[in-house]
């Protein structure tokens, strides 16, 4: 199976409406074997809807999906068996220990190979002997992560996988994902955190109000998005000095003596220019998803997105 001929996930005009409410509209997408694909979008944009349709938990209104060459609407159970899935939120048998629960899932998968429960639990610092009802939200999320990878799936579909994980565990999770990639396994993950997607994904698709508005390679995407440089000077500085520098795409004058600029590449020139001034404070952050939308689609659309998306998609 070569990636170009037979993508692991293929969506063709996949559309889902909940009655009259929008879920996803005309989503076309192809995820290749061995890549880590980030499905980026704000809450309510339709990420979970797309994933649940792919896994036959809900059915498309129109269009179709193929997962590992199978049609989920016809072979839902087989599709699900062929993937490792982590839902955005999930319940468990709370009276069981983490280990018993994960073993039950393995038995349900009828998985007979070498499992990774102990290894993954060790890496994520998950106490397998404790009952699930005693777990915090973060620890329960670790169970989900283990369940998605414990049976060595060739394809993992992860819906907001780092929710509830502390930063250390998030880093460990990223390592686990990158290992999957090195094994030529495919990971499809949704997120509303730009930095997360940027740090581990090969490609990114942005979904907004149910539509997939952009799919890019990460390198191209990063160039487009840039980072936000927030500088406080000891006196007022002319913003046009920076505006003319290469890689600076956007500049705003903040309160006091602050300049906020978006830098997508060539940070070197900016730093050299900064060195000529007295700097009180400086931060260099990822562009937020909202700022990204603001940059590409205008203020009006963003505010519409925020309000319009709320509660529409489950």
């Amino acid at each position: 199976m070569t990636p170009d001929i037979d993508p692991v996930i293929e969506l063709n005009k996949l559309t889902k409406f909940y009655g009259k409410s929008r879920g996803i509209i005309d989503v076309d997408l192809s995820v290749k074997r061995g890549e880590v694909f980030g499905f980026l979008g704000p809450n309510g944009a339709g990420k979970s809807t797309a994933i649940r349709t792919i896994l036959d938990l809900i059915r498309p209104t129109s269009g179709w999906a193929r997962v590992n060459g199978m049609d989920p609407t016809k072979e839902g159970a087989k599709v699900r068996r062929s993937v490792g899935y982590l839902p955005s939120d999930f319940g468990t048998y709370k009276s069981m220990t983490a280990k018993a629960y994960l073993r039950t899932l393995l038995e349900m998968m009828d998985y007979r190979g070498q499992d990774r429960i102990e290894e993954l639990a060790g890496r994520l610092d998950l106490d397998l002997k404790r009952r699930i009802k005693d777990f915090s939200r973060g620890n329960r999320q670790k169970i989900g992560v283990v369940s998605a990878f414990m049976h060595n799936p060739k394809l993992a579909i992860l819906d907001e996988p780092t929710t509830g994980l502390d930063p250390l565990m998030q880093q460990e999770f990223y390592r686990i994902v990158l290992e999957e990639k090195s094994k030529e396994n495919t990971v499809f993950l949704s997120s509303h955190i730009l930095a997360e997607v940027e740090s581990i994904c090969d490609r990114v698709g942005i979904i907004r109000e149910g539509r997939l508005i952009m799919v890019e390679n990460m390198s191209t995407f990063k160039k487009k998005t840039g980072k936000v440089l927030n500088v406080e000077f000891d006196r007022k500085v002319d913003p046009y000095i920076f505006m003319s520098l290469p890689g600076v795409s956007d500049i705003k004058v903040g309160e006091e003596n602050i300049l906020i600029m978006t830098v997508s590449s060539h940070i070197d020139g900016v730093i050299k220019e900064l060195a000529r001034h007295t700097i009180i404070d400086l931060t260099y952050d990822e562009v937020s998803l909202e700022d990204l939308f603001l940059k590409y689609y205008g203020k009006e659309n963003v505010s519409h997105n925020r309000n319009g998306a709320r509660g529409v998609v489950q």
Partner: peptide, 8 residues
């Protein structure tokens, strides 16, 4: 979700 994700 997770129960059905096992392929049941």
């Amino acid at each position: 979700d997770i129960l059905l994700a096992t392929g049941y």
